[in-house]
Every structure is written in C-alpha cells, then in structure tokens.
Nucleic acid binder design. Structure first.
Ligand code: FES
Ligand code: FES
Lengths: 144, 144
DNA sequence: TAAATAGTGGACAATTTTATCCAATATAAA
DNA sequence: TTTATATTGGATAAAATTGTCCACTATTTA
C-alpha cells in the first residue's frame, strides 16, 4: 500500500504530535525508539516532513522535532503520504498503466476507482491530531 | 498497491482469458506484446500462475498459455494476487507493524480495515472472465 | 568563547524488486 | 528419428528501495 518510508513517516508524525500535545520536543533517537525504526533512515524522512512544513525541527541542545498548534490542526494523513510517496495514490492506475485514465480505462478501473476514492477521502479527512489523541489514551500502538 | 509482478500477472491473465474465449492459445511473446511487459520477466510470472493452476501452459510447437472452462469460471482477482503477492493484502498492517492485530491496533487500524475489507471483497468477487469479456468488447485496455 | 548537543547532507552499502540471458526440457510435426 | 518450436529453470544483472556512516552546521549553555 504505502512505502516503508511512508509508514515510518506516518508513525513518526503521530508520535511527534502526541508528544507535542504534552509540550515535549523529541529527538531523532526518541522517535526511532518510539516507532521502532532505523534512526538514520528515519532522519531522512523527518527531514522531508520538515521541509514540507508537516513538522518542525530545531538544531542544537534543547533542539528536536515538534508540531505547533497550526500543524496539529491542519496536517492530514494525505499531507504525509503526498510528501513522501507523491501523487501516485491519486492518479496511479491499479494495473500499472502510465496513469489512470477514464477515457482508456484498464479492465479494473471502475472497481479500483471506487476503492481508491474512499482511501483518498479517508486520508484527506483523518487528522494526525485525532490519531495522536487516541494514541495518547493508549488505544493504539506505534510498535509491537 | 500491488507489485509490478502482480500487475503484469493480472493483465496477462485477462489477455489469456480473452484469447481462450476465442479458442486461441497464446505464446509468451503474444502475452508480452499484448500487455506491454518484458517477456522474460513475464515468463516467470506465468510460471507461477501456471503452478497455481490459474492458467495452463503447454510446451512444444502449438504450445502456449491458455485457460480452460474450469479456470475461467473460478479464477478471481484474489487468486492471482494471492499467488503472486501473497497474503499481505489480507493480514498486513497499513502502518507496517508485523501483522494487523485487532487487540493491539496501529493508530489507523479502523480506517484501514474498512478499506482493506472492501478491497478484499472486490478482489474476491471479480472474476477474470468478466474482465476478459469487457476487454473483448473493447471497453478496456491492457496497454497504452 | 569553548564545549557539548542535535539536526543536516552527502556518500555509500545492503536488500529487494524488476529484468535479462541462456542452456535444458518437452512436444509436435515432418 | 530429426528438426523446429515453446516453455522451464537457473544464473546474473540492473534498478529501486531501504538502511548506514560520518563530517558539518547551527545552537545552547557553561
Ligand atoms: S485506468 Fe487503471 S485504475 Fe484507472
Ligand atoms: S493494526 Fe495496523 S491496520 Fe490493523
């Protein structure tokens, strides 16, 4: 479904959001441990999220990653997926043709379109904040 | 969504099904041209489909790939996806945790489960035959 | 200002996926 | 029985993704 990088990105964002709710900045190491991911690789992903204004990062001692109120309010899962995996979820063809195309559809176009549109809607309406709140309550897990 | 191999596998199956409806066996080359895929790679995929009794293959002159009436009647998209990509579509976690797990769900479990269940249902109810019939009528395309 | 800390960026390595090549096998027809 | 044809299987190769290492920059604090 998503690339490994994107999975890490989503999990990291939820963790950072949750800690930000508690007014805590977190270090790369914190994130990697919280979501059980390779630190150096995670670093690249956080950089990308940072450049896309999904999280912010501060250097130096007392530095780390965090999300401000604005980000917490507006970041949806779709923002993260788009930043990391690009627009393939939106215009990719389920059978790998160059692009999804209504006029010259692949054999499963109609079936795929329905499911993809729901996925899209889900990603666009689910906020990282809401997921972070649930996570904070212990309802969900970022590693096992 | 699916691996490239799986995409080729589905497209190949639809083409083979359609040609079988016209009582034609097709060669590897025919398939690769019809779906615009690398022949040697496609060969591996057809072998896997053949070993899983999704298509049959005959060696020697007049040989080639085909689907019999039984296969045409019972092969669903899910058979192909399962044969090539395995069960990850069924039990994989959307955020990459070891396995999807109701008891210790990842933060997007509920949202994902809904979509994945629909995808699953779609794959399990869509026959290759129905897609082949539409393709035969010129309603859909296997390459562009 | 010096030292310690934390993210950044670039090069590089490992792994997985995708793709190619070729000899071997099976089969049909001449 | 020979020849031609078509799939099979194994060994490689190329490309993409995932993962690592390390020197550098920015920043805080002593
Ligand atoms: S053309 Fe294949 S999904 Fe739309
Ligand atoms: S636990 Fe992640 S999708 Fe079910």
């Amino acid at each position: 479904m998503f690339s490994k990088a994107c999975e890490y990105g989503i999990r990291a964002s939820i963790f950072i959001a949750e800690q930000s709710l508690l007014d805590r900045k977190v270090s790369l190491k914190d994130v990697a441990e919280a979501i059980d991911s390779p630190a150096a690789y995670t670093s690249k992903i956080l950089q990308k999220l940072s450049r896309n204004n999904i999280i912010n990062s501060d250097k130096g001692p007392t530095g780390g990653f965090s999300m401000g109120k604005k980000e917490l309010e507006k970041v949806k899962l779709s923002s993260i997926v788009f930043a990391i995996d690009g627009e393939s979820i939106y215009n990719g063809c389920g059978l790998g043709l160059k692009k999804c195309n209504e006029k010259m559809p692949c054999p499963v176009h109609n079936q795929f379109k329905m499911i993809r549109d729901e996925l899209k809607k889900m990603l666009e309406t689910t906020t990282v904040l809401s997921l972070a709140v649930d996570y904070e309550k212990g309802f969900s897990f970022l590693k096992r």
